[in-house]
Structure formats: structure tokens, C-alpha cells
Simulated scan of single mutants.
Amino acid sequence: MGEYLLRLALLLPLLGALVYGSLRLTRFLQGRLVGGASEGRVLRLVETSLVAPGLRLAVVRFHDREILIGAGRGGLVRLGEAPARPPARADARADVRAEVGLARGAQGDAP
């Protein structure tokens, strides 16, 4: 009985560490493969949306084109295509607010 408890005390934390490590490795590799830096890549996933269980819409950027794809249990279907939008800047709103503030300040100074 004592030998069993000793093995359990040693192997259970080891098993937990292996599970934790595999989950961390999976998360790291998924982020690297899907959401990582896409410089130099031809195909890039822009956005996905779950429409219904088993039905998903995806926007894929390919050679300066954005393609809308429907993905379901039956496979993939191309739904539409458009020219690629320029990537949105993170500080675009700050720039717009600054311009609006400057415009308001210029109007306030006029008699």
C-alpha cells in the first residue's frame, strides 16, 4: 500500500506537468501558425464569424484580394471577392480626434 501511494505521489504531479506543458505548447504553436506575423505570406486569415453551429464565414486575403468563404460540413464555398482594404492603423482614431480638435480650435479663434 505504501509503495502505491509513493508511486501516486511521484507520478501524478509528473502527469499534471506533462498536460500543462502540452497545453502551453499547443497554444504557442496555434498563435504562431494562425495569428502570428504574416510578413511575406501570400495567404492570410483576416476575420472569421460563426453564423450557425457547423457554419462559419471567413475572410481570407490572397494576392491583394479579400475573399469571403463559407465553411460548413459540406466543405468550402467562395461567396464573394473584393479588392483588399488597407490595414487599419491602431492610432487612426487618435489622428482623427486630433484633426477634429484642431479644426474646432481654428473655428473658435475666428471672430
Rank of each mutant, 00 (worst) to 15 (best):
S22K: 03
G72C: 08
L11I: 04
R44F: 00
R61Q: 14
G40N: 06
R61W: 00
A58P: 02
R56D: 03
R24S: 09
A103Q: 15
G36I: 08
G80H: 05
L6G: 01
P13Q: 08
R27Y: 11
Y20D: 11
R73Y: 05
A58Q: 02
G31K: 05
G40H: 07
P111L: 12
P53Q: 06
F28C: 03
G31V: 04
A106W: 13
P83R: 09
L76I: 05
G35N: 14
R24W: 14
V60C: 02
P87I: 04
A71G: 05
R27H: 13
R27L: 10
I67Q: 03
R41I: 00
V96D: 09
L5E: 15
L33H: 05
V100M: 06
Y4L: 14
L45W: 07
R97D: 14
P83N: 06
A106M: 12
D64T: 03
A82D: 04
A98Q: 15
I67W: 04
D64Q: 15
V46G: 02
V60T: 05
V42R: 14
V34S: 02
R104V: 08
L45I: 12
L57C: 00
A110R: 13
P87T: 05
P87Y: 03
L102N: 09
G2P: 07
G35M: 06
D109E: 13
G36T: 09
V46M: 00
L25A: 13
R104C: 10
Y4T: 12
E47V: 00
A110Y: 05
P86I: 05
R41H: 15
A106I: 03
L10A: 13
L57F: 14
G36E: 08
R44P: 01
R61V: 01
R93F: 08
H63K: 09
Q30V: 07
R73W: 08
G54A: 06
G40Q: 06
R78W: 11
L55K: 05
Q107R: 15
L33W: 14
V59L: 09
R97E: 15
R97G: 02
A98M: 08
Y20C: 09
A37Q: 07
E66D: 11
I69Y: 04
R7L: 14
L6C: 00
D91G: 07
E66P: 00
F62Q: 11
R89V: 02
L76M: 12
L10Q: 15
S22R: 09
L11P: 01
R85P: 05
R32T: 10
G2I: 10
R27A: 10
E47H: 00
V46Y: 01
G35R: 10
E66Y: 01
F62R: 05
L45A: 12
E81G: 01
A92L: 11
V19K: 03
I67L: 15
L8W: 15
R32L: 13
R104Q: 15
G80Y: 02
V19G: 01
V77G: 02
R24E: 14
R32Q: 13
A103N: 12
L12P: 04
R44L: 02
L29W: 15
G80C: 04
T26P: 01
V96P: 02
S49P: 00
L43M: 02
R27E: 12
Q107P: 00
L8K: 15
G70C: 06
A37N: 10
Y20A: 14
V42L: 12
V60R: 01
A37M: 03
D109H: 06
L6R: 14
G105C: 04
L33F: 13
Q30I: 12
G2K: 09
A94F: 11
